[in-house]
Simulated scan of single mutants.
Amino acid sequence: MPTYGYARVSTTEQDLTIQREALRNAGCEIIREEKRSGTTREGRQELDTLLAFLRPGDTLIVTRVDRLARSIGDLQDIVRALKAKGVAVKATEQPIDTSTAAGKAFLDMLGVFAEFETNLRKERQMEGIAKAKEAGVYKGRKPSIDPMTVKALLGEGLGATDIAKRLGIGRASVYRVIGSEGIE
């Protein structure tokens, strides 16, 4: 029965080394890894590849349940799909083994806490942004499109589609600049 590992961090600045070593030490023959947010399954090609590849009798190992998913809904969907395939899920740092009733219950509890932690982090972030805006410190992201460039290209007789192509942006962005700047 082959053992596969899945490692994930949220940002490109984070390192996968500790997870990779823990999974190797747990006996994983193949380890798939990626640097993507765990709040959604969208865009997680390595996880999708692994889920499609696993066969009955295989075991998927993660270091912690929040590496697999930070949403209880996504976690339950993943575990249900794996169970239907006859694949067990285990974690190296948590007593999770979906082949047992206690392990499945503990997995669900940890999933709830992972989602709760994500929601708390979002709330704190929004509070911080609100305070920074009040203090005049936070102004949001700097504009990536120079309105004067758009105006100059309009002056050359280019339409929104051609301006968008030239600047490598969407047409809607060109229209947004034209509308917000009162450019005609």
Rank of each mutant, 00 (worst) to 15 (best):
T3Q: 14
T12M: 09
T12Q: 11
I18W: 13
R20L: 14
E21A: 15
A22Q: 15
N25A: 15
C28E: 06
C28V: 01
I31P: 00
R32T: 09
K35V: 03
R36M: 05
R44N: 06
Q45P: 00
T49F: 07
T49C: 14
L50P: 04
R55G: 00
R55S: 03
P56H: 10
G57T: 10
G57E: 08
D58C: 06
T59A: 05
R67M: 11
L68P: 13
S71I: 14
L75E: 12
V79D: 01
K83D: 13
K85Q: 13
G86H: 06
G86Q: 10
V87K: 02
A91T: 15
E93F: 02
P95L: 08
D97V: 00
G103N: 07
K104L: 14
L107K: 09
G111P: 07
E117P: 03
R121G: 07
R124T: 01
Q125C: 07
G128F: 12
I129K: 03
G140E: 05
G140I: 09
G140Y: 11
D146Y: 04
T149F: 00
E156N: 09
L158Q: 02
A160S: 04
I163H: 04
K165R: 15
G170V: 06
G170T: 11
R171T: 11
V177E: 04
